[in-house]
Design a protein around this nucleic acid. Sequence first.
DNA 1: AGCGTATATACCGGTAGGGGTATATTCCTC
DNA 2: GAGGAATATACCCCTACCGGTATATACGCT
Lengths: 106, 106
Amino acid sequence: MVSTFEVLAEPRRREILDLLYAGERHVGELVERLGMPQPGVSKHLKVLRAAGLVEVRQEAQRRWYRLRLQPLVEVDQWLRPYRDLWERHLDALERHLDAMPEEGGR
Amino acid sequence: MVSTFEVLAEPRRREILDLLYAGERHVGELVERLGMPQPGVSKHLKVLRAAGLVEVRQEAQRRWYRLRLQPLVEVDQWLRPYRDLWERHLDALERHLDAMPEEGGR
DNA sequence: AGCGTATATACCGGTAGGGGTATATTCCTC
DNA sequence: GAGGAATATACCCCTACCGGTATATACGCT
């Protein structure tokens, strides 16, 4: 079984999740928006499905994919203690941050 | 440059971060606790360092590693919209969760 | 200067993962 | 049931990554 972190390591897969954030999408839509060949998209979707990050609904030939949040909740849980660190000690965070000349943003 | 997600994909590296969560550690300590050969640990530390997830302080032959939170903050920022989803619509989360027969826990 | 300790780096072999192309599968329509 | 649309799967190639072993580098001590 593949860990959620491994699945999220692929930029394309995070892109897919970001697209599904807005709501259900069928494969063709994803192919178009990602600008990558359909088999590649299907392959990533398979990985995402295996990890429980998406689920499928079939409608005629179309397959509609949508998010499943649960694995992300687990990632969030792993992150939580660290988040507590920088939220509780804001000064410590600044000590961490001031080492960076500038911040890249998103 | 390697994305933080790729770096976190490695279980050993997350273990290292979890160990550093408690505070500074030198390499030998990490080697002992992880039960893996020293060169492997050093290699992972190099990756973590390149990603800005740890920083080093030298003291004689010892190298003390400690956490840098900033990249984790960025991961948290990526996660935030999704977290908002499940925090705002708790019922929606439950709809997501009830698809699972049982929960594996951590 | 020489030795021991602590850590990093070089090198090698195996392997899993991603891209690309071709093909199979499924379903709808006529 | 034939054809076409939508998606999945099989196969191949290639590269990046991980583990392991050997070696280099840096530092302190005597």
